[in-house]
Design a protein around this nucleic acid. Structure first.
Lengths: 343, 343
DNA sequence: CTGAAAGCGCTTACAG
DNA sequence: CTGAAAGCGCTTACAG
């Protein structure tokens, strides 16, 4: 009956029992053919495969996960997918995980929600491992996940004193790179536009930047708080640029704020890079667009993601392995938003 | 033993049987408490909940899906998540589906792969429904999915003569809006930069645009082929703009190509909008950035997504419902990349 | 190499 | 309102 209610599918999917009947073997044998780990006579195998093809049989992944205790699903939690840079992260993760025959269960917490809110669902669906990127979670939460036995990988953030693994860009080293570049090229009035205050990415970039400046005797860096968005970067730059003693260089904690800063300079008729240098962090696609030509620190996304997946799958295979935290160095990408010769 | 191999979790998750034992009831009663559809004495319920809380019990969603034949998972297939506009689509879908207590199983086909390649996995995981956005799939594939009983929703594309439902922006009407705007404001040398040739979005935008122009007696629209990316938009615009009789208005099939076109004009010293008007389609965030101020057709994303989810869930509940195709009108967003007064 | 049987963690008639 | 039992679609010892 086509219009019955209650959510049942219109046709019952075919099961291994039906394939077994058609092939004239037991259901166990059908299972063996598809699990590919047991040995089956090649003639039997052919008969089963033929029957399966005829019926359009595909093993039910959920049923097998019940007994193998492996779902081959990895949960990915991402607060804001649209925050620039993260679509690339998500796409790469998804494709690389599929290449490893892992499925992706996606959770986006959104502005109003917290990781705490989606965690129960993550766990009810028995993901084999969990990747948390671009989302804030406290160390208590981390410990709870780990205690439940789900391997956890933090991407571009890390939590001290926990048992989660983490892969991150070396944000401190990146900040130092920028400090050296700006001092080497004779900039004298430096400013930093900060991203979200409580994120390790922002903190580390700032620490690396100011620490290296201090090592080289520069202490007067100005600072504006923003929140990793174009709008807040634009506004923070405006505040810096209308002052009497305006900076001759601004380091922004990510690219999208740097683009806002460039547009702020454009508004005010300040010429880049002659009167003002602007440097970002990430190297998102828009950084290379003609309107911006942003000098920035490139995050080695592909390396970070491959390493993340490797680390996570390794811990799924061998739950006893100790957690690791790895930092991957970024690299400067020189374009035209920062002047390169001392005046 | 912490370092045994073989993928088993370090602690066995607690099951309804253990909760039942602690609460002194049968396993069925524990199940009833959590399924919330059967009636349970309030005192029993309290005892069970207390026991569950103590043990940290959460029902295994996969086990229950085996017997209910509902996984509460929706598959989303997206070719390129990073293609601008689509991160927003994915984020909204994910959050809205979670609000409806549906999980999202994500598939990204990537440049090399096809929907055909991921389809077997989609089906093995028994998603209750499937959303395909920004990915090409032929009508044969559509029919196969539908035949297997999985409700299918196409987002921003549709396939003639199939049984899939579809929700799309009214791209034809959007193209007509642009034609009227350009003629009303006295533009005389019009051009179109096309997106991927075989997508219904691109086709419909072009059809609407040129059809409306012809209705008003304009037949000479020039055309360049591009592929929905910044780079190809930039190059297509360059080709148009170096010609002797260069256009005074370019309509681009999406925003990101329009941003490329604006940067091409910038390179060539052509002033926007005085000498050249550029109009896009989508209204991505970068369209409003100071460097671009792009006039464009806004896709009503939220409405499209809410409608998509509603349509899909409705078909999951009632498999007999006939498929529907719905078009949601877009609207012009006037910024500064197109001149508004006739010269 | 193959089959019969137990079991993964739930839901749901069926009795009582 | 509650329990015993069957069953969802698989995997995997255990025999043979």
């Amino acid at each position: 009956m086509a219009n019955r209610r209650g959510g049942s599918k219109s046709e019952r999917p075919v099961t291994s029992v039906e394939v077994a009947r058609l092939a004239g073997v037991s259901q166990s044998t059908v299972s063996r053919v598809f699990s590919e780990r047991d040995t089956v006579a090649s003639e039997t195998m052919a008969r089963v495969q033929e029957a399966a093809r005829k019926l359009g049989y595909k093993p039910n992944a959920l049923a097998s996960s019940l007994i193998t205790r492996r779902t081959n699903m990895i949960g990915i939690v991402m607060a804001e997918i649209t925050s620039p840079f993260y679509p690339y992260v998500l796409e790469k993760f998804t494709q690389q995980l599929h290449d490893q025959r892992q499925q992706v269960l996606l959770f986006s917490t959104g502005p109003s929600k917290d990781v705490d809110d989606v965690l129960p669902d993550v766990l009810r669906y028995k993901v084999d491992g969990l990747i948390v990127a671009n989302a804030i979670l406290g160390s208590a939460l981390v410990d709870e996940i780990v205690r439940l036995g789900t391997p956890l990988l933090l991407f571009n953030r890390y939590v001290r004193d926990t048992s989660a693994s983490a892969v991150s860009c070396d944000n401190i080293a990146g900040g130092r790179l920028v400090a050296d570049l700006l001092l080497d090229t004779g900039h004298t009035r430096l400013a930093y536009i900060a991203g979200k205050a409580n994120t390790s990415t922002n903190l580390d970039r700032e620490v690396g930047f100011t620490q290296r400046l201090r090592e080289r005797g520069y202490h007067a860096v100005r600072r504006e708080q923003a929140h990793y968005t174009y709008e807040t970067g634009l506004e923070a730059a405006r505040r810096l640029l209308v002052s009497d003693d305006r900076p001759d260089a601004i380091f922004c904690a990510n690219d999208i704020m740097a683009l806002g800063a460039i547009d702020a300079a454009r508004e005010l008729g300040i010429s880049i890079p002659d009167q003002l240098s602007i440097i970002g962090f990430d190297d998102i696609p828009a950084a290379s667009w003609g309107a911006y030509a942003l000098t920035t620190v490139r995050q080695p996304v592909t390396a970070m993601i491959n390493l993340s997946i490797h680390t996570l799958l390794e811990r799924i295979e061998a739950p006893g392995l100790p957690p690791t935290t790895t930092f991957v160095p970024g690299s400067l990408v020189l374009r035209n938003s920062a002047r390169l010769s001392a005046r």
